[in-house]
Measured scan of single mutants.
Amino acid sequence: MAAGGDHGSPDSYRSPLASRYASPEMCFVFSDRYKFRTWRQLWLWLAEAEQTLGLPITDEQIQEMKSNLENIDFKMAAEEEKRLRHDVMAHVHTFGHCCPKAAGIIHLGATSCYVGDNTDLIILRNALDLLLPKLARVISRLADFAKERASLPTLGFTHFQPAQLTTVGKRCCLWIQDLCMDLQNLKRVRDDLRFRGVKGTTGTQASFLQLFEGDDHKVEQLDKMVTEKAGFKRAFIITGQTYTRKVDIEVLSVLASLGASVHKICTDIRLLANLKEMEEPFEKQQIGSSAMPYKRNPMRSERCCSLARHLMTLVMDPLQTASVQWFERTLDDSANRRICLAEAFLTADTILNTLQNISEGLVVYPKVIERRIRQELPFMATENIIMAMVKAGGSRQDCHEKIRVLSQQAASVVKQEGGDNDLIERIQVDAYFSPIHSQLDHLLDPSSFTGRASQQVQRFLEEEVYPLLKPYESVMKVKAELCL
């Protein structure tokens, strides 16, 4: 049975990233139509530049190519590739079939990587351009969430054990800070992308030097003109047959890092959902379990974690691919890159769409948070109580021993009897502590235990987050809708 299948058929496997999760716009960027249309555009740009620099290419040939950029006979191309065992030459023939007058000058002087690699770089750039505003929107939604809850005390956790208090907004800023680093890295790697350009079979530009009869300047002009037509500021000066596969490492490393950030955020949300302090959106008709109707599973956060793990592992592909590119190139890269580049971007696209949807509907339960604080705060307040007693004339050592005994009794009630923490009640009825009984409410005010959390939130948002989001103001209103 021949390899390949009808990918629109229910009898043929289709990647869930495309069929179930990723956005239509990201799927289109990695589609065959987008790819092969870009090949034709690159052939047109090459012909236009070659004509401008004096090669015998007519206006009629150029116009014929322009008129057929979208006229792609995919069936013919597939048949040609089956016959020739070469995808680029299959599309040269297919393009030439609908451009008979231009057929002889299509791909003039070029090698397969002229269309293959340059198209990949265009796709990487455009895919990054799709991700950047999506990530900015996630940051914006979380920034709104953090600002609104900047002063809401909550129990902090280290080692997932109760620690000092923080605020809900401050905790959210930990998430935002990681995503801001990801946004900066995505922008950097996007701006650092260079075009492969017009380089020939081993990167020496020998074929173009021959076409222009040894004119170095025209060869350099050709490279520059096509690079500018493709919208790049610069091209690699040095290439082998391909652009260095280190570029793929750079791009997928940034995406993998984004995956790590999203995994951490969504894990926190899942843990908070278990504590009943916070939940992701839950639709009115949504079913959490087929057997347990009360369940409210954090399905979206779980999906993000599941896909983020996949995204983090994909960076190993370009690392290994770059390491086995012998001399000017081997074909070890080809099949692998067809999979890992598309999957990385479709996965990143999915987790950003999902995280935006989550961040637009996060639900906080202040009463649950308050109750958990009441359970733990008495123990945390013991040092403040000791200091207040010393100020009232008591002995630190005597007070410490009193607190120690009462704390152990209260802990026994919590752990052995399943009761509430009654340390404060014990202190309130103990005559030894009568000098500070009137101060206990103040000493137990949760806001006095959150330090500068709310001020940190305000400063972080104003100095770091809002300036970073400013270039994306025009796209901030787009909502994230999930079908599944």
Rank of each mutant, 00 (worst) to 15 (best):
H437S: 11
L275Q: 02
L440V: 14
H7P: 09
I339E: 06
G361L: 11
V92Y: 13
S12L: 07
A3V: 14
R194A: 02
K415H: 12
A291L: 07
F28E: 07
D349M: 03
H437G: 03
E401M: 01
V115W: 01
I385E: 08
T158W: 03
E80R: 11
P467A: 04
Q375T: 05
D268W: 01
L183H: 00
A78Y: 07
S253Y: 08
A47I: 15
M76N: 11
T239W: 10
I62G: 04
A431V: 13
L258F: 15
T227V: 14
R171E: 15
L222K: 06
I57R: 07
Q325T: 02
D191G: 08
E417I: 09
H263D: 00
I339Q: 15
N71M: 06
P446L: 11
S290T: 06
P16K: 00
C340A: 14
L46W: 05
V92K: 03
V88S: 14
I424V: 08
R125M: 11
L331V: 09
E277L: 06
I358P: 08
N274L: 06
V390A: 05
V226W: 08
R396N: 15
D192L: 00
L461R: 11
N357S: 12
L132R: 08
K35T: 14
K470V: 10
L272S: 15
T201L: 01
P16I: 15
M316G: 05
V247F: 09
P446H: 15
K187M: 08
R300S: 00
G418T: 06
I358Y: 15
L331R: 12
E220N: 15
V413L: 07
S447K: 14
E473Y: 12
A78H: 06
R296Q: 12
F449N: 02
I57V: 09
Y243T: 14
I287W: 08
N68E: 11
N71P: 11
M278W: 04
R338M: 06
A291H: 11
F74P: 02
K284C: 04
I369T: 09
Y114P: 04
R141N: 10
D117F: 05
A322T: 01
M389Y: 02
K229C: 04
Q184D: 03
N297S: 02
A235Y: 07
H310V: 08
P10F: 12
S434V: 09
P366G: 13
E277G: 02
L183P: 05
S23Q: 12
T202F: 07
T204Y: 10
G418S: 14
K284Y: 13
I265H: 14
Q184T: 06
W39D: 04
G240Q: 02
F212P: 09
R171L: 04
F36L: 08
L131E: 14
L186W: 07
E463S: 08
Q51A: 03
I385M: 14
R459K: 01
C113Q: 15
K470D: 11
M76H: 06
L209W: 08
V315I: 07
A260Q: 15
S412L: 07
Q210E: 02
F30A: 09
G104W: 07
D248P: 00
S448G: 13
A2S: 12
E473S: 15
V138F: 15
Q416W: 12
V390I: 14
V478A: 15
K295Y: 07
M292R: 11
V88G: 06
T52E: 10
C340E: 02
V414D: 00
I269D: 07
K415Q: 00
S257T: 12
L174H: 00
G361V: 14
H310Y: 08
S253H: 08
E60V: 08
I237P: 10
S23F: 08
R309G: 06
L42Y: 08
S207C: 01
D73P: 11
Y472H: 09
N421P: 07
A260T: 00
D182G: 03
S407P: 00
L314H: 06
Y432M: 00
H107P: 02
G200T: 15
R374P: 14
I265T: 11
V457C: 14
H159D: 00
F212A: 04
D178C: 07
A308N: 05
I436Q: 12
F95D: 07
